[in-house]
Design a binder for these strands. Structure first.
Lengths: 209, 209, 209, 209
DNA sequence: GATGAATGAGCCTTCATTCAT
DNA sequence: AATGAATGAAGGCTCATTCAT
């Protein structure tokens, strides 16, 4: 959306960009359009417009609209995994950590990178096996990340072992996932207190008696 | 692909039908097509074919494709609420009841009326405010149904009051919702044991110490 | 190009036609456009315009532009074979017959169904294996028709057996084919006397000494 | 796909070249692409790739794709005329000469410069008056070359004067032309014996009784 | 001389929707 | 009540061609 800082002759319109830069910019623009308009609603024309280019440029960087979508998904996945890693490293106390996980998830899905989070709900309805595989893999990856972290906390004796780590992970991740889905459909009434409730619940369930 | 086991006077193909009956038949066919092909993938041609009629007939019963989709959603909502009511009435013991809720939810989303459940994931990406409102309302209704039931059980002193009823409801419903979303994207590896784990978890969290 | 002889209410534009009729009309229009503009030059828009319809109608009768082209080819083939059959039946005297073959070929390629003849030159450059196969098969069929006829004349002792029937057939058909190719590129200077020369040549080569 | 055996100072990839040399290289590459993919199928991208250069370079040497095609055609024409001249000079005995003409034509269209021969069938369907004029002129030139040669042989009393030289020329050239067209569409079944038959036919028709 | 980046124009095809019968 | 025929409006994608570097 921002343009040329180096190019100076401001008579023509579109600034020439290095390939890698433009590719990145298209991915960024496509992310927003896909997340807001869905796969089918996001026409190549809209994406091009959002990127400030003409349609054919898209096809110099991506084989097809589907390919572009997949690349956007992969970018979102990396983004989400990185974010989770960062968040899980933030607190020493495990209970605070998993509470923070929910807090930060809220921040991620509503503020920091809302569209990136929305992509997964959108992707789920595309009816393309590669896209579905990407979703499953990502879901698995996030779940594993969280499960391992919880298991470690248990093994270190820092949280209760009453429930299997994968159950707790599934619950935390599942609820988060569900809440982000609610955001997609515009549900905002119950949001805020829900997160606080969940944090209290997490503490309660994990605390060593 | 074949539908109605209850509808009876459909002989073989495209016979004159009473308006109400035909409408019902279109809704039934549309449900399957929408759930399997998404909103955009479900063309009016496919829906008509699935219903064994021609396209214009659709427009004698529904203003537009969008209208048809909304009606299908409303039908799914009724179906789901009724199902929940029935399930919640099944067990006297509350803990068995909420465990059964998960069990039956699994049955509903995978066997009994899978497509009806899938509609919600599909609907979430249509980017139409009326449709989104319908989703939110339905989600609210289900949540309220469950919350009230749990609150009653607490008031009757049958389950622990450690956690607020809306939190427990949100968790049970949220996980269920997430699991049905996983089904949509084809995840089936962890399904079975997950349900058992969840039931144990529910019991554990609700049991009076 | 001509419209409704039965439809009377001349207020709207496009006359409703029976499916078979319209299909035939599209084939006819497409023949002219393909023959004059080539496969790629003949856009579906031009074909639709020539048929006095809108583009989507084409797709109610043919899977694709390629499919339409193939159907036009098949129609041309039938037309050409029928024409040949008729011509070969016209004269009792074999020499007059083969001379007439050239005469009528000229008439066919320049007047009666010029575009049908042109299709083959156009088709030869489409680079599609099915289309090429159709061309080869047609060429074979015409050649066989002529070869058999010549062989019979020889066996009946009506023409000289100095040259093998397939050679004579190949020569007559080959020259005809070449001449129609010349018409395609607009060569018209030498046309007329060439046909007379050829007829004399044929007589000379076939006459029993 | 590799071309120039005569061009020598091309080291590996896209080196600076003298204008004339580069032009020649583009023409050579374009010939192959046009002959194999047709006018419309041969995109400037494919031509550039075959020439090992980028697209804009083409436009430094040729005004447009059409212009390039015309230049390729002119090159093919020179090539073909030269070849014919060489072949007609090979045999002293006229009958052997015209038989050789067919032999060498076969060699030319199938082995030595197949693509150059194919250009003419491709060109015939481009629907551009300049291109069609070029084809006609070339056809005329070849025909004249052959006619003159045959006329000389007749005047020298070496072959029968039963048929007018232009008729014999038209037949020989026409059949050759037709056979190369058959090659274009992939007909290869009857090829080999046909050439032998034709040679026998030529001898028979030209021999002085 | 050569290229990387960009685009206007247009093509084939699909789809929701209407209308005459 | 039902259908066959028709279409306006787009949508994804490609291509010849041009500029700035």
């Amino acid at each position: 959306m921002a343009c040329s800082a180096h190019a100076s002759n401001s008579e023509k319109k579109v600034p020439r960009m290095k390939s890698e830069e433009r590719r990145e910019q298209i991915l960024e623009a496509a992310l927003h359009v896909f997340a807001r308009e869905n796969y089918h609603g996001a026409t190549t024309a809209k994406i091009a417009e959002a990127a400030g280019i003409t349609e054919p440029v898209i096809y110099q960087h991506f084989k097809s609209k589907r390919d572009l979508f997949l690349e956007v998904l992969k970018r979102s996945r990396k983004d989400m995994i990185e974010w989770n890693t960062k968040v899980l490293a933030k607190h020493d106390d495990p209970i605070e950590r998993y509470q923070g996980f929910t807090d930060m998830f809220k921040y991620y899905t509503t503020q920091f990178n809302r569209d990136s989070a929305m992509m997964w709900a959108v992707a789920a309805t595309v009816n393309d096996s590669d896209i579905k595989a990407e979703i499953r893999d990502t879901d698995d990856a996030v779940l594993e990340q969280l499960t391992n972290n919880i298991r470690n906390s248990m093994e270190e004796g820092k949280i209760s072992s009453r429930h299997a780590p994968q159950v707790l992970a599934r619950i935390i991740h599942g609820i988060n996932s569900h809440l982000s889905w609610l955001i997609l459909v515009g549900e905002s009434r119950t949001q805020d207190w829900v997160y606080e409730d969940l944090k209290r619940f997490i503490a309660d369930v994990m605390r060593k008696d």
